[in-house]
Design a protein around this nucleic acid. Structure first.
Lengths: 200, 200, 200, 200
DNA sequence: GATTAATCGAGACGGTACGTCCCGTCTTCCA
DNA sequence: TGGAAGACGGGACGTACCGTCTCGATTAATC
């Protein structure tokens, strides 16, 4: 038998674990977060966690995905003004990284991600993909509207938008503010604007 | 008394610890890198490590800074062609992140960094600053040569260059190749080029 | 929760620890007897020791009590000759203290005992009580036979028999030989004999 | 050169160490008494202690001998009544063992003594000998006065007096009171009295 | 009084064991 | 059989002291 039978899984335990994980993460920070503590808080045996998750990271990921699912789908506005729409989403992302509370969980997952390729993949696909996809969609619409050059790779543009934020967040090289978000968008727009409209 | 007297520090022990840390990191990876192992390999008491460093991260940082110091100062070429010069340095950075070997140490430090503000500060200032400064210097020269618009913040440009690499490295969203490096540089140049020369 | 559940205790581990403790004590002496060494020798985690014993002394005590239990109950001979019977048991005790091997464990326990009231209590009650009780029983029989004065406290007599041995053992004031044992018994008999039979 | 030059020894440091040792012993008990703590309290380098003493036990011994020397020589009264005189000294000894304060130091030294033959020798000869000798002297006088049988070994009598106290002190088998002291003396006297005077 | 050598306070050093924490597995007993 | 509970072997943690060694800065005896 390759693994446990998911159909017999106790939903109550699953929820208790995810809730406990999120609570502890907020309370004590990632480094003080142990499987043992999660199990104790959740009133669950350790084995129950090891049976259904690969480790700490997998639990947190599930907890976050679960929370995100509750929050609903990511949809980018399309006001016709690409710059304005991007500013909206980038400001949101920057705010998220700036918020110590939200940032703590990101930080936590990022740590696990660094040492676990499979987890990295899941974080990317299950947690971040929706937002990245939404941005790509908006960029595509912008391209159709002639606001983006034909020769740029949209995925690269996405990295141009989000990369600097990660960089600044990791290295603490400066404040994560709305003004900063706007600057990033402005530069990105400059990078992708058609020649005849290079100043926005 | 705030702490030990640095003037009485044993240089031989310091070197042994840094060397052992680097060796173990290369040999066995980050997860097998324990203070205990470093002490044993270095032939040093654990207390000697705890006396002079705040933890594993601080040891690795010192080891890397030390190694970098031996390697010498970072100087960017200035061939007059800003794009070519940036491609050189960005290709190097991308290669570093792509190399599992070199990347392991970065990975290790980043993990520590995520949970330790003081360490993050030191990594930024002692390890990365030289390269970032060198790039900023080259950009300034480019600006004087009319290759960079006056209204762009050079620090933001730096993040535009390095941020995407971090992003792709963390999320494994694509390969880290020379072609990718060139793409990043190309987009960045487009973002900062004066209006009348917005195509490279 | 006050402590661990004894019903779930692993008997194999318990035995391994006690055996290892006894072996190490015999092999390397008390100073080389560390919890760490016992754990290693027993193939047991340190926590398993700390879970069930309060420290080194408690482990040794248990080991000795266990060994004594295997050896069986202490019964003093009753040949009718009180002096002869006491000489037998006191010679045995003296020999035990004289033997560096057996004495090492006594020494070890005594050290622990000196700094730990609870342990002292247990050593007295679980390890020594049987012998002391056996002697008291024999003395009581002697009293019924008119060989012991009615006004003497038998517990004090016991101390009169064993006390000098402890004294000599602690202060190394003289050899611990059969002749010495006989001398102690002789004096003690003189102290407790009825008036009309004060010479042995 | 076999050792340090005693003529150059710093008397101030010697006194500081002995005082600190005694103070710490009273404050924290023997097991918490470390060379490091003594050195710190005395304002003395550790090496200064290791230079002049063999270890913790030697320091304490010196401290106690030093204190005893201040107290002056031990002289037993000779009122002509051997029993009364012995009761005086044994009551004093019992009181000393009963006093947690004084007993702590005895306890401490006894521990060291158990693992260190050389120290045991010194404790016996420098610290206890005076009292034992005084008792032996009084017993000899008693013998001349016809209160002690000729065939008893006076050293054995001494052990008969002090042994039970050690025994009771080590094993906590009963209270250490004046009444107990008197009982010990009474039994001892019975053991050594000439036949015609076996009841005191 | 100057010289010189040992002692001094201080504390860094290589070690060892401590007792705690948590890992991931295993065992027991309950529902 | 899944789950709660938690004992288990293992191993790193960071701390406390051990006894030795290395530093200037006093001393104290000798010149």
């Amino acid at each position: 038998m390759p693994g446990p039978d998911p159909s017999r899984r106790n939903e109550r335990s699953r929820r208790a674990v995810l809730t406990a994980a999120l609570d502890l993460l907020a309370e004590t920070g990632y480094s003080d977060l142990t499987i043992e503590a999660i199990a104790a808080r959740a009133g669950v045996g350790k084995q129950t966690i090891y049976r259904w998750w690969r480790g700490k990271g997998a639990v947190i990921l599930d907890a976050l995905v679960d929370a995100a699912a509750v929050a609903g789908d990511v949809v980018l506005p399309d006001t016709g003004d690409l710059g304005a729409d991007l500013r909206t989403v980038i400001r949101g992302t920057v705010a998220e990284f700036a918020d110590p509370r939200l940032s703590a969980t990101t930080r936590a997952l990022t740590i696990e991600t660094l040492a676990d390729d499979e987890l990295a993949e899941q974080v990317r696909d299950r947690l971040l993909r929706p937002q990245l996809d939404a941005v790509r969609l908006r960029l595509r619409a912008g391209r159709r509207a002639g606001q983006v050059r034909d020769d740029v790779d949209l995925d690269q543009v996405i990295e141009l938008l989000f990369g600097p934020i990660y960089h600044r967040w990791l290295l603490r090289t400066g404040p994560l503010t709305d003004a900063y978000a706007d600057g990033v968008v402005k530069l990105t727009l400059a990078a992708i604007a058609p020649v005849t409209a290079s100043r926005q």
